[in-house]
């Protein structure tokens, strides 16, 4: 049971981080479908930090990993920002390209590093068994992960920032009615850049939390198995509001965690369901949930439409 709570919390943290990322970006008016790729790149940044600083003390390690993941995430999201904001490209297409690019680039980079170290090593795996311990504090049987706390802090920040500060309200104005925002002197382009870059920061962070959640090595060829899109489903289910995002992330986290720990429950084992079914569960649930919540969606009105100053 404790194990289930632990996994639920850590997967929910990933979903909250990434969904908040999507939330900032969409409130500013840019659809970020490239979150999956951003997660992979962020995970790569964090994993490389761990690989090259194996002996850093715990606090330093956490800081370095967050820095690595966040910087790479932000830089990567700039690719979307330039294309979607300045060049007015199709945001769905750019997002898809970024997802493919993320996995391909991470694989190429990791393989290049591995092969350079040892010509016989052609895998795309990075190990971080000892380094991972820095994030974990054991409280009895429960493994507390520092990222859970960081997520909680960022969640509160998101709520305050979006609803209680000038910046947040201006950001949301750009996603609802950019022409109106522009007419009162808000720079729509700058705000959208800010939204996309924050989403890159959170997406990258989510990526590193995801790959350190259950395992101590990661094969980058696999990407992040649709987690970026699950986070987008969480965001839609959460109606683009931080508090509701947190709640729906907990629900999705629970179903994801079940696939890791279902064998510990006598009742579930007795059902004799194939393990593949548990792997499918989060995707099925999200599809069902989306079917019920999408019809009265509260999506930002101007999302996905490139801002054109001359348009009325």
């Amino acid at each position: 049971m404790i194990l289930l709570i632990q996994y639920t919390l850590i997967y929910a943290s990933v979903l909250i981080l990434v969904a908040l990322g999507g939330c900032y970006s969409e409130h500013s008016g840019v659809i970020n479908l490239g979150l999956e790729g951003t997660m992979v790149m962020g995970a790569l940044g964090g994993a490389l930090m761990m690989k090259y600083n194996p002996t850093a003390p715990a606090a330093m390690m956490i800081l370095l990993v967050i820095l690595g993941a966040a910087v790479v995430g932000v830089l990567y999201s700039l690719l979307l920002a330039v294309a979607a904001i300045n060049l007015k490209a199709d945001q769905t297409l750019v997002g898809t390209a970024l997802n493919m690019l993320g996995t391909a680039a991470a694989t190429v980079i990791v393989k290049a590093i591995n092969t350079a170290e040892d010509p016989n090593n052609v895998s795309s795996t990075i190990q971080y068994i000892s380094q991972k311990k820095a994030f974990i504090v054991k409280l009895g049987k429960f493994e507390f992960n520092w990222f859970m706390l960081i997520t909680a802090v960022l969640l509160v920040c998101a709520w305050v920032l979006l609803y209680r500060t000038r910046f947040g309200l201006r950001l949301m104005a750009c996603g609802e009615h950019p022409q109106a925002a522009d007419s009162v002197g808000i720079s729509v382009y700058k705000m959208r850049y800010a939204g996309v870059m924050i989403s890159g920061f959170l997406g990258g962070l989510g990526g590193i939390v995801y790959i350190t959640a259950g395992v101590s090595e990661w094969k980058f060829e696999n990407g992040v198995a649709g987690f970026g899109f699950l986070a987008l489903a969480v965001m839609i289910f959460g109606q683009w509001k931080p508090t509701r995002i947190a709640l729906s992330a907990l629900l999705f986290g629970l179903f994801r965690a079940l696939s890791n720990v279902y064998s510990g429950f006598a009742l579930l084992v007795a059902l004799h369901l194939p393990s593949t079914l548990y792997n499918m569960l989060p995707y099925i649930i999200s599809l069902v949930v989306l079917a019920f919540t999408s019809s009265k969606s509260r999506a930002p009105k101007a999302e996905g439409i490139p801002y054109d100053k001359g348009q009325r």
Binding site: A105, K111, A112
Partner: peptide, 26 residues
């Protein structure tokens, strides 16, 4: 040459091509 590079380099190239295709309109 597998001792230096990996075959995914072509995936990378096609991903870059799609990214660039987004600029066709521009």
């Amino acid at each position: 040459d597998k001792t230096m590079y990996c075959s995914q380099i072509s995936d990378l190239i096609s991903a870059i091509i799609i990214y660039l295709c987004a600029f066709v309109l521009f």
